[in-house]
Every structure is written in structure tokens, then in C-alpha cells.
């Protein structure tokens, strides 16, 4: 929702290269994830892999960290969306009841198990894919392709820095670490995982280039929610302000994202510590709602999501390759015996 502004911080309007770069790295990561999850016999989720690699105690410590990381991710998603509603829709509303209702919805989705979580995700994917078409067609008269030029006026390091910022948008692939055992035919699914990653990268690229042509660079730096501002220019019969509808449609995407994260966290707790998912679900949701109630200013939200994004980047770019290496070494060592 806000990545257009974040990625241009370093690379300016060359940031589309960063998006492509991040997309390629993500393909590599997916490949690694599949290798990690499929190489060790009868342990195909991250909890058991951590146990095998690092022993029971250290392994569980890492597992707990991963679980907390997922809960943190769900919280950030939740809070960022709440803030958007607060700024755009209901500035003076008391948000505790709303967050409780949303938490109940997530509770409902997650307690339905993996099936209902993936069900929501399907709808969320369809919505993002469909919403791109009117965006392109309605912004068309306002686009300035000249903004994209000159093609290369930033250094390689700037572009790399921006692609680090971009990784935040891809956070979520790591849920595969828990989802993998539920995939019926893992070998076939890898092809689909790569396909959807390609699609997502293209989607991000399209939205980014659209924003680049719609806003000048300085203007984009002053815009907190570029996508919403862009939708704001549309004029359709009956509805004067389309952005309100967009925010409401986003709700389903947000619910899907939160549900998946919370589900992964609960699953982690169950496998690692044999806790009942329902119990951990209630604890996590209560914690998120409470945190949401106490963090109220935009600056803290920005800071929190920056911390989350940094942790996420290390998780993706350091932890996963590290586990990958460990798994490969282990495989080499065990094979000859």
C-alpha cells in the first residue's frame, strides 16, 4: 500500500529495477525453501528441522523467535490498516470495539483451520488481480511516461538499498515453512509457487510504474498512501470517492494476511510446544488488540513497521540461507554413511 514511497527513498525513480531485483531474489529464496523442506526425511516443517539441526533447546528457542516474528507481522499488518481507516474514513472513532470485532473475525477464520485461511487468501488474490485493471485504465489520462527517464541515474548501491526496502512487501513467503506439510503434491506446487511469485512481482512492478508516471518524484515523497491518492482522482458515476471503496475492499486482503500469519504462529506453537492452537490463538489476538490500543501515533507505527521490516529482511536473507546451508551440509555428511 505504501511501498511506492518507501522504495524511492534511495533509488528514486530507478526503483523499478530494485523491484525486479527483489523479485529475482525471492525466486531464489523459494527454491531454497523447497530444498530445505524436502531434503530431510520425515521432518518437513521448520520446527522439526530446527530440532534436528540445532538440538531440542536451541531449536525451540529459534522456533519461539519465529512464532513471535509471525505474531509481530500480523500486528504490523493490523495496525497499519487500522491507521489507514483512522485517517481516511473515521478520524474520531473509538477503535477498541472495531479491533475487537476484527480480532473475532480473524479468530473465526483461523479456528476454521488451514482450509478457511487459504479460502480467504484466494479471494484476496483475486481482488488484487482484478483491481489493477480499473487502476490502469482510469489513471491513463494523468500518466507522464517522461517521469521514468532517464533510465539509469542512480548508483548500484542505491538500487540495492531500495531492493532491501522492497523485501518488506514480499514478507509472507516464509509462511511456507509451516504450510509445506499441508501441500498435497509438493513437487508440483513448486512450479506454482514460482509462478505466483512472478505474478506478484509483475503486479508490484505495474503498480509502481503507474505511481511513478502519476506522481513526480518529490510529490510521491510527500504522499503517504500513493495508491489511495491515485484512486482518489477517478470519477465514476454514483460514487464520487472511489478510495473509500478501495479501503473497504482491502479489508479482505488484510484479514487474509493476518489470518495466515496467526495461523502459522499457532501451528508453530502446537508443533514445538504441544500447545492447543485455540489457546495460543486467543493469547495472540488479545495481545495484538491490546498493543493496537496502546500504540496510537503514526511515528511509533512507522518505527514499529521499520523494525519488523528489518527483522524480516534478516530472516529472509540471513536465516533462510543459513538453514539452507546447514541442511545441505547435513545431507552431504549423512549420505556416505
Amino acid at each position: 500500500m505504501t511501498y511506492q514511497r518507501r522504495v524511492i527513498e534511495h533509488a528514486g525513480y530507478n526503483a523499478w529495477i530494485s523491484v525486479m531485483l527483489t523479485g529475482i531474489i525471492m525466486h531464489l529464496l523459494i527454491w531454497m525453501l523447497y530444498k530445505i523442506l524436502s531434503s530431510i526425511e520425515d521432518s518437513n516443517d521448520i520446527v522439526t528441522i530446527n530440532h534436528k539441526l540445532f538440538g531440542k533447546l536451541l531449536g525451540n528457542l529459534i522456533n519461539l523467535a519465529i512464532v513471535l516474528y509471525f505474531v509481530f507481522g500480523a500486528f504490523v499488518k493490523f495496525k497499519v490498516y487500522m491507521e489507514m481507516i483512522q485517517v481516511w474514513l473515521f478520524p474520531s472513532m473509538n477503535f477498541l470495539p472495531v479491533s475487537i470485532v476484527i480480532a473475532l473475525l480473524v479468530y473465526y477464520a483461523v479456528s476454521g483451520g488451514i482450509r478457511s485461511v487459504t479460502g480467504i487468501s484466494v479471494w484476496a488474490t483475486i481482488i488484487s488481480l482484478v483491481s489493477i485493471i480499473p487502476q490502469i485504465s482510469l489513471t491513463f489520462p494523468f500518466l507522464h511516461p517522461m517521469n521514468l527517464l532517464p533510465l539509469l541515474n542512480h548508483s548500484a548501491s542505491d538500487i540495492l538499498l531500495s531492493s532491501k526496502d522492497m523485501a518488506f512487501e514480499y514478507l509472507g513467503v516464509e509462511t511456507l515453512l509451516f504450510l509445506y506439510p499441508f501441500v498435497r503434491t509438493p513437487e508440483k506446487s513448486q512450479k506454482w509457487a514460482h509462478f505466483i511469485m512472478l505474478l506478484v512481482t509483475l503486479l508490484y512492478l505495474m503498480i509502481l510504474i503507474l505511481a511513478f508516471m502519476f506522481f513526480t518524484e518529490e510529490q510521491l515523497r510527500h504522499t503517504i498512501w500513493p495508491t489511495l491518492n491515485m484512486i482518489g482522482i477517478f470519477e465514476v458515476p454514483l460514487l464520487q470517492r472511489l478510495e473509500y471503496m478501495a479501503i473497504s475492499l482491502w479489508f479482505i486482503k488484510i484479514i487474509a494476511g493476518i489470518s495466515i500469519f496467526i495461523w502459522a504462529a499457532c501451528r508453530g506453537m502446537k508443533v514445538a510446544f504441544h500447545l492447543r492452537p485455540r489457546l495460543s490463538l486467543i493469547v495472540f489476538l488479545t495481545a495484538i488488540t491490546a498493543l493496537c490500543h496502546f500504540i496510537i501515533d503514526h511515528r511509533t507505527v512507522e518505527r514499529v513497521s521499520e523494525i519488523y521490516s528489518n527483522i524480516g529482511v534478516y530472516f529472509l536473507y540471513a536465516y533462510i540461507p543459513f538453514v539452507f546451508l546447514c541442511v545441505m551440509i547435513r545431507k552431504k555428511l549423512i549420505k556416505p554413511i
Binding site: H144, Q219, R221, H222
Partner: peptide, 10 residues
Amino acid sequence: HLTFFNYYGT
């Protein structure tokens, strides 16, 4: 919007 486009645009 276009005013801002031109105002912030270099």
C-alpha cells in the same frame, strides 16, 4: 493533483 504534480515536479 496536477497542481501538485507541477509544484513538486522538478
